[in-house]
Amino acid sequence: MPERIFIKSACQISCQSPLAEEWIDSPVALSGNYLRSQDPKFSDFIPPMHSRRMGLLLKRAVVTSEVALRKAGITVPDAIITGTALGCMENTEKFLGKICREGENMLSPTDFMQSTHNTISSLIAIRLHANGYNCTYSHGESSFGSALLDAAVQMRLGKIRNALVGCHDETTEETFRILTHAGYFSEGEAPATELSVSMVLSTDPDGALCELRSVSVENSHSRTADDVYREALAKAGLADFRGDVKILSDEGFSPIFGKNLSLPAAEVYAGAQMVGNGRCSVAVIVGGSCGRSRTVVVLSEKC
């Protein structure tokens, strides 16, 4: 019998007020082409001796993870599954920049070590002494969807009872310039931003924000938005649902969280918070549609 899955907690560090849900009623209006995240005081969460080697992305990932776990009342999760489209760009740029400018000698091992994509999941596990399943997905805008799907599949197979699932991306000034040149960011669209989202999934409904009814990731084909939405509800057993359904998509949420490859994670976080706070009964997230793959998630009230 497949397990039911719940989202116990979810939090974010973004261009909105960090680790809070003020954006629901009073979002900060976004302006300009490029916005960095609003960061909490990291020293409140991580002692300087531990954070000294961490760039912003790692600090954000550690803080959102530990806050989400605390809110869920879990000390050591059964699994840590992370998505990141580009990884720690600050470290990558430093290491690569040095090689290109100064040659292949006297390079810093710290920059290399912190630049590998799985350093996020690894660092979280080291801090928590978590020996369970640990994985990292890096596949553009479906990085988060892949991570969430993995967690859901393992819970349905009965391999794990809970999981810390997150998605983290940073947009340094260099990344912003390069991706603007590449055509990913452009003027007139939502500003380029960065994002850290962590959430805790569990088979235990106690205190949960919502139920995770279904998750799928598909290579984008030409289906209408309506078809996607109807099929998602049917797959979640909600084909006949006539209550309050909110659709969350890149279009609706880039005015709030800006544009970045982790946006689908923000949409699932937002959906969980909105269902959890009684703003709607069902949330259908269709994330990353502008890209090559689409993440479709259905959340509902616990019943």
Partner: peptide, 9 residues
Amino acid sequence: SIDALELML
């Protein structure tokens, strides 16, 4: 151990 490498550098 990483600090040791950085000190060597």
